[in-house]
């Protein structure tokens, strides 16, 4: 009996507040928009039954997504921005994780703390910090003008460049931690063996260290890519009117245009796109935990 309650409580909570809401989104994505509250015309009711629902079913909102170029451009540009920023985060995060793994033993708790600290600080504030740095009269421009590298201020805030900087900055700890965990477990004698057998230090790095930290790299990349794809705060604070990201489009569709059926259809398609990386990520995690045992 007690066991039943233990299972039933979290189970019922998740069914009611995770699964059911999601089914509602799917349902509304198949409904027609209406000028009422709530602003959609229900296409499905239990009274009419499933038969009537299926007879009237259309994918109007999804067809609309393919017709209006705003949406598929937003999906493509989100994918592109997420991919590029994941690559940039890897390029910056790997050397940091590598440095941490090779740092003297007594430094490591401090380095670890320095990587985790930003994770506990407000995400919104960390994005906001860049607004003062990247603006026309911001610190970066002041610094570059002072050093004489540029003569007129650069426009960085409200462009895609600022979005890349924002994503790399906020998700860097997510890339560093799994790579550090993988490198920390790496047996140093393997690299010595490679060097004894005639590898240069650089080729030992590429042939031994990088392949041995593969699981960490993959995990880090997915931990950056998946949230970056649906990101809302970064493009709306740092990006400009030309920055198309699907999280922002969904938000505006819902709050500004009040087109709930289309917003729901946008959400359903975004989730369908995300399923592939999520499944790949799960598989990588499973393989990594099997390799540990």
């Amino acid at each position: 009996m007690r066991r039943f309650a233990l299972i039933a409580l979290p189970y019922a909570w998740l069914l009611a507040l995770f699964l059911v809401p999601f089914l509602i989104v799917v349902k509304i994505s198949l409904s027609d928009v209406a000028l009422s509250i709530p602003p959609y015309f229900p296409q499905f009711s239990w009274e009419e039954g499933i038969g009537a629902f299926l007879a009237e079913l259309d994918f109007e909102n999804f067809v609309f997504l393919t017709q209006d170029s705003l949406y598929w451009k937003a999906y493509l540009s989100s994918l592109f921005i997420a991919l590029v920023s994941t690559a940039l985060t890897l390029m910056i995060g790997y050397p940091v994780a590598y440095g941490m793994a090779r740092a003297p033993e007594e430094w490591r708790p401090t380095l670890m703390m320095l990587i985790i600290l930003p994770f506990w600080t407000s995400f919104l504030i960390r994005v906001y910090a860049w607004m003062g740095i990247l603006s026309q009269e911001g610190f970066l421009n002041q610094f570059l003008l002072w050093t004489g590298i540029i003569s007129t201020p650069l426009t960085i805030l409200n462009t895609n460049t600022a979005v890349y900087i924002g994503i790399v900055y906020t998700y860097l700890p997510f890339m560093v931690l799994p790579i550090y965990a993988a490198l920390d477990r790496l047996d140093g004698s393997l690299i010595e063996a490679a060097e004894d057998l005639g590898c240069s230090r650089l080729s030992a790095f590429w042939l031994v260290t990088v392949p041995m930290s593969r699981n960490g790299i993959i995990a880090g990349c997915f931990l950056v890519f998946i949230p970056a794809l649906g990101e809302f705060v970064i493009p709306s604070l740092l990006g400009g009117s030309g920055t198309l990201m699907i999280g922002k489009v969904l938000w505006e569709e819902f709050f500004s245009n009040r087109d709930w059926p289309v917003a729901s259809a946008v959400a359903v398609v975004l989730l369908l796109i995300l399923i592939i990386p999520i499944v790949l990520f799960q598989r990588n995690q499973q393989r990594a935990s099997e390799a540990d045992q």
């Binding site: 809401p21 509602i24 989104v25 649906g230 809302f232 819902f254 709930w260 959400a267």
Partner: peptide, 12 residues
């Protein structure tokens, strides 16, 4: 994605 979680809970 947070936007989806938020949207679905609001609709509920």
């Amino acid at each position: 994605p947070e936007v989806i979680t938020g949207l679905s809970l609001l609709l509920l």
